[in-house]
Design a protein around this nucleic acid. Structure first.
Length: 426
RNA sequence: GGAGAGAUGUCUGAGUGGUUUAAAGAGCACGCUUGGAAAGCGUGUGUGCGCUUAACGGUGUACCGAGGGUUCGAAUCCCUCUCUCUCCGCCA
């Protein structure tokens, strides 16, 4: 049985202290010693049971021979039957140990990259770079929830009526703006950045959700359709990464995919925080980029993917900054991560619109995605993904930064063709 | 939702309880042959988990859609499930 590993169990065995230190930097409580004990017992059992099976195979063959030659195999049969009982017992114990070990391993987060800054929480995240400048107003700027209502771009009350708070209903030109932004971003990534577009399922099964690391630990963050064992996706990362699950890829790397999907998040535990308007919602649109690379190329491909996301914001003329998450703030599956944040001049704060992560081989191990290295040996790929970008906060930034004193909103020039020539929301 | 057929290695495709140690063919790799190539001939050709080895390797075990079961022994028999195809029903 393949014990799913997020961390290479051999690596953990040989570098226990490194793993312990990494978990400490993450503020993650992980019992490495318990894992090592299970691993040790597992290997003991395998040595013993494989030896017994080898013996049994030889004896079983001799029984076949005896029968063919007219001998009486009953004595040997009885002997082998006894061995069978012992084998069954050991097999059973191994199954239990495997299950326990696998479960423990699934709850261990990835090791941060050696280049990830060590820090305790989000206050230790360094700013890597920024682009553009803060908008200034010579009038009192309005918030997007007021602008949107006045201009008829969305109707949050009616959205809440049919699905609940946090399920926005876009209307008229607001709905068209969503579609325009999606199309603009997909065109940019496919035509200029070399990504192949996908239109994946919007629901995934438990295996896929486990492959990318959402399950088992973050089940409460996900919606679930228990009757069918499905989960509405929290990000396109889940379906896209898992399409190559249990495969040995024979195509050239990197593989680069981009896709639009809606995203569904319960946002458990964040109730009431920054939820006004479109800031934090249960369903939102997003264009996602996913790459599969060799370990050698992953660091560079991660930087490039981040730049691909930034290009979206540059074309839209929006002021942003890139921060790097420190070890204490890093997501569960990520080894290294840049967040891109948009400035909104009305609320005067930064809004996260993209998270660009390098997972190293963590997801590839969980989902079993491999390629053949130069020696022809199956090797886990590295996976990288990032939003390119998420819509609601992007819409907020466009609305709040581009507003005029009469409450109208200037649309970025790159969107004009996608809005049927419309340049301004009045 | 109902009925039927099917799932074997990189591919095609044999295999209904014991030299299956998964036939055969194709493909691929290497070698021989050749001025070079083709043909021909020969050799090799998966994955996981262990043990062993400095390494190359060696060795054991498991894997014939998945998971259980029967048996001394399962690709083969039994049960459950998944997926694919065909027909019917329903439906955008």
């Amino acid at each position: 049985m393949r014990v799913w590993t997020m961390l290479d169990i051999r690596f953990v065995r040989e570098n226990a202290e490194v793993v312990k230190a990494a978990m400490k930097n993450r503020n993650a409580e992980v019992d490495v010693e318990a894992v090592l004990a299970l691993d040790g017992r597992r290997r003991e059992i395998i040595v013993e049971v494989d030896g017994l099976k080898a013996e049994r195979n030889i004896l079983s063959k001799s029984i076949g021979l005896m029968i063919r030659e007219g001998g009486d195999p009953e004595t040997v049969k009885a002997q082998v039957r006894g061995m069978g009982d012992k084998i069954a017992a050991l097999d059973e114990e191994q199954r239990e140990v495997d299950t326990t070990l696998r479960k423990a391993l699934l709850y261990i987060p990835n090791l941060p990259s050696s280049t990830t800054p060590v820090g305790r929480d989000e206050t230790d995240n360094p700013v890597v770079r920024s682009w553009g400048e803060k908008t200034t107003f010579d009038f009192e700027p309005q918030m997007h929830w007021d602008l949107g209502e006045t201009l008829g771009l969305f109707d949050l009350e009616r959205g809440a009526k049919i699905a609940g708070s946090g399920f926005p209903l876009f209307t008229g030109r607001g709905a068209k703006l969503e579609r325009a932004l999606i199309q603009f971003m997909l065109d940019l990534h496919t035509e200029e950045h070399g990504y192949t577009e996908l239109a994946p399922p919007f629901m995934c099964n438990e295996t896929a959700m486990t492959g990318t690391g959402q399950l088992p630990k973050f089940a409460e963050d996900m919606y679930s359709i228990s009757l069918d064992g499905l989960y509405p996706i929290p990000t396109a990362e889940v379906p896209i990464t898992n399409i190559y699950g249990n495969e040995i890829l024979d195509q050239a790397l990197p593989i680069k995919h981009a896709a639009y999907t809606p995203c569904f998040r319960r946002e458990a535990g964040s109730a009431g925080k920054d939820t006004r308007g479109l800031q934090r919602v249960h369903q939102f649109d997003k264009v996602e980029m996913v790459k599969f690379t060799t370990p050698e190329a992953s660091a560079e491909e991660h930087e490039k993917l981040t730049l691909d996301a930034e290009r979206v914001l540059q074309r839209l003329g929006l002021h942003y900054r890139v921060i790097e998450l420190c070890t204490g703030d890093l997501g569960f599956s990520a080894a290294k991560c840049y967040d891109i944040e948009l400035w909104t001049a009305a609320q005067e704060k930064w809004l996260e619109v993209s998270s660009c992560s390098n997972f190293h081989d963590y997801q590839a191990r969980r989902a079993n995605i491999r390629y053949r290295n130069e020696e022809g040996k199956p090797t886990f790929v590295h996976t990288i993904n990032g939003s390119g970008v998420a819509l609601p906060r992007l819409v907020i930034a466009i609305m709040e930064n581009n507003q005029n004193d009469d409450g109208s909103i200037e649309l970025p020039e790159v969107l004009w063709p996608y809005m049927g020539g419309l340049k301004k929301l009045v």
